[in-house]
Amino acid sequence: MCGRFMFEPKENPEIERIYQLALDDGFDPKTGEIFPTDETALIVAGDTQVRVVTMKWGFPGFKSGQSIINARSETAYQKPMFAQSIRQRRCVYPTTGFFEWNKGRQKFRFNYGSTADTLFIAGCYNLFDGSPQSVLFTTKPNESMIQIHDRMPLILSKKQINAWIYDDDFAQQFISSTMPQLTSTAVNKD
Results as ranks from 00 to 15, higher is better:
Asn162Glu: 13
Phe99Leu: 15
Tyr112Thr: 12
Ser85Cys: 07
Pro9Lys: 07
Gln84Ala: 15
Leu23Lys: 15
Asn126Lys: 15
Ala83Phe: 05
Met145Ser: 04
Pro60Val: 05
Ala122Gly: 11
Arg90Asn: 06
Glu143Lys: 13
Gly61Arg: 08
Val44Cys: 09
Gly113Pro: 05
Gly113Leu: 08
Ala22Arg: 08
Thr40Val: 08
Phe120Pro: 08
Ile161His: 00
Thr31Val: 11
Gly104Phe: 12
Glu100Leu: 06
Asp117Cys: 12
Gln181Cys: 05
Pro60Asn: 11
Glu16Lys: 12
His149Leu: 04
His149Phe: 01
Arg4Leu: 01
Ile148His: 03
Ser114Phe: 13
Ala186Tyr: 02
Ala163Cys: 01
Ala163Asn: 06
Phe98Val: 05
Ile146Lys: 14
Arg87Thr: 12
Cys2Ile: 04
Phe98Trp: 12
Lys107Asn: 13
Gln147Met: 05
Tyr112Pro: 06
Leu127Asn: 05
Gly3Met: 04
Pro36Cys: 11
Lys10Leu: 10
Asp28Pro: 03
Gln49Arg: 13
Arg90Thr: 04
Ile165Met: 06
Ile161Gln: 00
Asn188Met: 14
Thr138Met: 06
Asp150Gly: 01
Ala122Cys: 08
Lys30Arg: 13
Met6Pro: 00
Leu23Val: 14
Pro60Ile: 08
Ile146Phe: 02
Ile43Lys: 09
Glu14Ala: 12
Ile161Ser: 00
Tyr93Cys: 14
Ala122Arg: 10
Asp150Ile: 00
Ala186Phe: 02
Thr183Met: 11
Lys159Ile: 00
Cys2His: 06
Gly130Met: 10
Phe59Trp: 04
Ile69His: 04
Pro36Arg: 07
Val92Leu: 11
Gln173His: 08
Gly65Ser: 10
Asp28Ile: 10
Gln84Arg: 11
Phe120Glu: 08
Met179Gln: 15
Phe35His: 07
Gln173Asn: 07
Pro80Gln: 14
Thr54Trp: 03
Arg17Gln: 10
Met81Ala: 14
Asn126Ala: 15
Lys159Arg: 01
Ala41Leu: 07
Trp164Ala: 02
Phe82Ala: 09
Thr48Ile: 07
Val52Asn: 04
Gly61Trp: 01
Ala171Ser: 02
Tyr125Ile: 04
Ala186Gly: 01
Lys103Asn: 12
Arg105Pro: 01
Lys159His: 03
Lys107Trp: 05
Val53Arg: 02
Thr115Ala: 07
Arg109Leu: 14
Gly130Trp: 08
Thr40Asp: 02
Ser177Tyr: 07
Ser134Gly: 14
Pro60Ala: 10
Gly46Asn: 05
Lys103Leu: 13
Ser134Trp: 01
Tyr19Gln: 01
Thr31Cys: 05
Val50Ile: 12
Asn111Arg: 06
Thr37Glu: 14
Pro180Glu: 11
Phe170Thr: 00
Leu182Ala: 09
Leu23Ser: 07
Thr75Pro: 00
Arg89Pro: 02
Phe120Cys: 13
Ala163Ser: 08
Lys140Ala: 10
Tyr112Leu: 15
Arg87Tyr: 10
Gln78Pro: 00
Ile43Gly: 10
Tyr93Thr: 13
Pro94Tyr: 06
Tyr77Asp: 14
Gln173Lys: 09
Asn162Met: 07
Asp167Phe: 03
Arg51Met: 12
Tyr112Phe: 15
Ser157Trp: 01
Arg109Cys: 14
Ile34Gln: 00
Arg87Gln: 15
Arg17Ile: 06
Pro13Tyr: 08
Gly58Glu: 01
Ser114Glu: 15
Glu143Met: 08
